[in-house]
Amino acid sequence: MAFHNDGIDMTASDLDQEERAMIQEIKRSLSKFKKHRGNLIPILQSIQEKHSYLASAAMEMVASHLDISPSEVYGVATFYNQFRFHPPGRNQIKVCLGTACHVAGGDIILENFERKLGIKDGETTADREYSIERVACVGCCALAPVAVINDNVQGYMQPSKVEGIFLQFQIEREREERDKASE
């Protein structure tokens, strides 16, 4: 299967515009949080939930809102697994490598995703369509091995199921393109 790059390459100005809009939004939402150190992690979580990652500018803004140094924010953010510092792919693939999944061959599932997309865990494809992450345990051990595709938990994964997931993505994309063309 090939991954299309056409039409979704972003130019620098697109990115700038995207970032400007993000900064505006963060400015507005920060005012809802009290200036209390205990709010640091909830603030970072809410920013990531909305924008899917923590940009440098965002961390600076949080620091000045809470009146702490940007270093402090950075130190905290880099400590926790949850926080990302680069935009992830539009489709996020998380492969569980909890104990039960490991025993059931979770690493083989991860390898299949990696091979298919040509990226390693923690990376995003060049077209920003997919990113792969390994997660410690999503708590679905009885269904091992497990992968989480865009918040949908998929139990009893097999290498052949990996193929199926991409096939589905492709079908959806083709449908979207058709819909767009017919509009």
């Binding site: 440098s56 950075y74 130190g75």
Partner: peptide
């Protein structure tokens, strides 16, 4: 600040 975690921990400056 301390930055990163575990074996990757370093002293960092950000801003």
């Amino acid at each position: 600040t301390f930055a990163q975690r575990g074996f990757d921990t370093v002293i960092g400056f950000f801003g």
